[in-house]
Design a protein around this nucleic acid. Structure first.
Lengths: 207, 207
DNA sequence: GACCCTACCGAACGATCGTTAGGCAGGCAA
DNA sequence: TTGCCTGCCTAACGATCGTTCGGTAGGGTC
């Protein structure tokens, strides 16, 4: 209809189809699961046919692999940005809270892509898993270093328990926290870190 | 070969096939996922053919429904047993730790059945989900009452956050804790509760 | 021996899956 | 005008899925 070249194009832009497939597939994988989502269902969500997906991706597995990579990129970038914002005189709790906030922001800011790592990752084909495990190991190592740095009194096995427990809490929020309805992620991060640091006994009475 | 009637039967006992299918299916669902596990794979694990499963269960969905019910029964029974062990002069932290231990004991004691609720539940067919949601709601209500009872200074929305966070930590242990290699679940429960109550700052220094 | 019940099997059904082959429309370059 | 490239299509392939049908072997009961 409108065909002026100066205004933003209302029709599909170049490379738009590929991005739309990625987002629709990530959303469907998160809600229904990987094996439960067919290529025809993905295509239907973007008003295409299943065969068209194969113009943009080699296979359904390759599509999932890219979705997982995008999710890891989001949390990794968020971690690095939080690290750069470190100030010399801040406390360990402050630094930890900035990273928890960054992780939660990345989780919910790219929810479909990050949630794929939490929900469907255990069941993805082995070939897809090995393609993502390197990214995941790198991210875990960042947290291991961080926690060891701000809590040097913990031995490595304790750091591991704290890290995995913290991941358990943070990642579980994808299932039950709604940033639009329940408040800011920063407040949630503050609740997590202050509880982890000082305990419910003091937090519950103080707030 | 051996056909004596007095000794324990080396051949399959009555009702044995059904139980073996349940356990094999639960294990496969946990490791591979529900949609990724075919009835033929389940049958192979118990040295049968796929058709034989339908002698014991109406459908693959019915098999999953029963597995989920067994898992919920395990954690519910554990909760009730822990509740009965309440002593009049114990602290809130002691009572909480007994329930955390009970939950972890049930999780790992019937791992394949309880893990199904954590890993495959989000993706199970809607009909199966509604069959389990009542059991799950009842168990959640038990924990809501418990936490509200031992931390009366928290308002309902805070209780909800604490409950869901605690579930996030406890259920995540299925992915990374190995009771056989890493120590007792009681110690893990103690670490969780003491951290939740008093914070890492005191725990880390004291231990 | 006749009968039945439990536990299992072989074979097949229709549906759905991921994927491929080949074609067509439109935009852009020469 | 010709030719190519991008983006999407229809149609179909073989594989695998959950499930059903019609059996059969064996043990217990009368």
């Amino acid at each position: 209809m409108t065909s002026s070249t100066a205004t933003a194009a209302p029709s599909p832009e170049v490379g738009d189809g590929r991005r739309r497939i990625l987002e629709a597939a990530a959303e469907l994988f998160q809600v229904r699961g990987y094996a439960e989502t067919s290529t025809r269902t993905i295509a239907e969500a973007v008003d295409m046919r299943a065969a068209s997906i194969y113009h943009h991706f080699d296979s359904k597995d390759a599509l999932l692999t890219e979705i997982l990579a995008i999710g890891m990129q989001a949390v990794t970038d968020a971690f690095d940005a939080a690290e750069l914002a470190t100030e010399p005189d801040e406390t360990g709790a402050q630094r930890l809270q900035r990273h928890v906030t960054a992780h939660l922001d990345a989780l919910f800011g790219h929810k479909a892509f990050t949630a794929a790592h939490v929900t469907v990752f255990p069941f993805v084909p082995a070939a897809v898993r090995v393609a993502s495990v390197e990214d995941r190991d790198r991210y875990e190592a960042r947290w291991t270093d961080l926690l060891g740095s701000i809590a040097p009194e913990l031995d490595p096995s304790q750091v591991r328990v704290v890290r995995l427990s913290l991941f358990g809490v943070m990642n579980s929020t994808l299932d039950w926290f709604d940033p639009a309805a329940e408040g800011s992620l920063d407040e949630l991060a503050n609740a997590f870190v202050s509880t982890l640091w000082s305990g419910l006994g003091t937090v519950g009475g103080g707030n």
